[in-house]
Design a protein around this nucleic acid. Structure first.
Lengths: 342, 342
DNA sequence: TTGTATGCGTTATCAT
DNA sequence: ATGATAACGCATACAA
């Protein structure tokens, strides 16, 4: 049923040549006579010959494809990263294979193994919110799999990493709230395991301290599933809103936390920013248009993807082991609204 | 540098067996003695043996991977579709390879060829806004490549298709605007080549006629790049707003057109929906929270992806040629805002 | 029950 | 300048 594609063997038979001659002619080898070359090339063109990449892969022990493992494809940040990865990969002749962990450690490990068993030449990954044990990743890495981490990285692992300046982003966001007169600022972060959570909280704390505002642990909440589930964000919001010093503003530390926090405010009819200041990390297309939000911290997702792909491909294509690990830190952009309030 | 993975040959040598015995033992063949099986299985476990999928592919003439070609990954609708595809594919042991056309016909053809040359078993695709010549697609299909179209489909081609009820979605949206008292409703569609544009415009027209409103061609605009570029949407908006009968409401026929139309309104300080009713097709996460919009037409993107993947895998895994082509039409959901205006 | 040989499509290494 | 052969890892038809 499936069309039988033409192979080197077919060409050889049709032209009364050997497969090696045909192979060499196609690769424009100097050992082949111009006439033979011409004959082969023309026949190949006529029959629309295409080399079989799978046979190539088997021979060359490489698949010319890279794996991307993220928690969720249908998330604006990750899809923008994948976009960047794909653009670099396609330019360099690589396929992009995607997998998602859905914020589950178990799925992360199985996806990793799935991608691993020699079907990809390297992996770009962002760990799931559940992950605190990085042994599956490091095992794979130690076996020689080229890997680059981005966004949610495994701090303890030695590998190339691409991140944004999370601390600075959270610092700027918090500072902006302070500048706008908010006094009692809370923070909702992703899973406490994640490095990005720690960094963003640190930026938040730094800004508070610099403005002589006392840090209150009651005003920091975490979302174990990265904010993916509305319910966990609602729990966090309720916890914050019922704390002894009720917050007048909130920093939301991810896309999903931002949108789910907004859903909560809408449900509870809490006017933003009149009743509650809200500023979030978000790469959602429309976010800058949302009247409720004071402003938005954007990650340069496309660039992160491109950079990660470049690092990965350079690892894959260099013969010798990597000895120097790069951690590329890109600046987060604060997308301020034209008119600030108060 | 890259870890040498253990092969059947390695196991055979280590255990003093032949490769065929090992191969059969691993596949739990009835012809192998329990003791040998046990020995092999244990050694395989110890050495963490994983079959080489590439060798398998070469032998079985299938790659266990499917390609997905969309115009843009970083688009909420498409990323939701890919999410659905990935969930089905991963369950059935298939890789998902992604490619994007960026709304360019040229890139679409090259991506198609790229995916084609035996590196995927089938392709799920949504055509680019530029595409009016479907010969590249049909050629590939006629060569035996399993293909399923979704959303933006090639009407004239005989293949499985998964779409939403576009006409109905646009009809409902238009009706809602009429019900809310808008009199002069305009429509911005994607490229006029696309079937989805035609269907959505038809739904718009049907609703107008059913309410005895005269259809005015001046009030229909197209975006050749699917609304991807802000400028083309601005041009469309300007054209509409300066038409002889200035519209009091607009139907935006895609995600990008909706958001870019909103950007335009914001830039021009046109209040929505007080000054201009706006209702759009959108799968963006936050859209339902956007105060300006009356409501939103949502496509069941995840389900479309799942359905497309199921159709594709059934084609791939069935031996004989498909004779009956399905066109699966899923309902669009109208996401009404709680309080309508006027 | 186990082993040998072949082929999937390609290229590299040896011949000729 | 060209051809024969082996190899990549696996599965299977055929032998023993």
């Amino acid at each position: 049923m499936k069309f039988e594609a033409v192979t080197i063997k077919d060409i050889a038979k049709a032209l009364g040549l050997s497969t090696s001659t045909v192979s060499r002619a196609l690769r424009d080898s100097y050992e082949i006579s111009p006439e033979t070359k011409e004959k082969v090339l023309q026949y190949a063109r006529e029959t629309n010959y295409r080399p079989n990449p799978i046979a190539l892969s088997l021979k060359e022990k490489r698949s010319s494809s890279i794996g991307v493992l993220v928690s969720e494809i249908a998330n604006s940040f990750f899809s923008q990263v994948i976009n960047g990865i794909e653009s670099v990969a396609q330019e360099r002749g690589y396929n992009v294979v995607i997998a998602q962990s859905k914020e589950s450690y178990e799925r992360e490990v199985s996806a990793l193994n799935y991608l691993a068993s020699r079907s990809v030449d390297g992996i770009i990954l962002s760990v799931s919110a559940e992950t605190y044990d990085f042994s599956a990743i490091s095992n794979l890495y130690n076996k020689g799999m080229a890997m680059v981490g981005f966004d949610r990285i495994a701090e303890t692992l030695q590998m190339h990493k691409v991140i944004v300046n999370n601390k600075r982003g959270a610092y700027d966001a918090t500072s902006q709230l302070i500048k706008n007169g908010f006094k009692n600022i809370a923070c909702i972060a992703s899973s406490s395991y994640l490095s990005i959570s720690k960094e963003r909280i640190q930026g938040y704390i730094d800004a508070l301290q610099e403005n002589n505002i006392k840090v209150n642990d009651e005003l920091i909440a975490y979302c174990a599933h990265g904010g993916m589930l509305y319910d966990e964000v609602e729990v966090a919001m309720k916890k914050l809103m019922s704390s002894t010093k009720k917050p007048d503003a909130i920093i939301a530390c991810s896309d999903k936390i931002t949108t789910n926090a907004m859903r909560y405010c809408k449900k509870e009819k809490i006017a933003i920013p009149e009743k509650l200041g809200l500023i979030g990390f978000s790469n959602l297309d429309l976010t800058e248009l949302l009247s409720p939000s004071l402003s938005v911290v954007r990650q340069p997702a496309g660039d992160m993807g491109k950079k990660a792909a470049e690092l990965l491909l350079s690892m894959i294509e260099s013969k010798r082991a990597v000895t120097e690990f790069q951690t590329v830190v890109l600046p987060a952009e604060i997308h301020e609204r034209e008119s600030s309030i108060k």
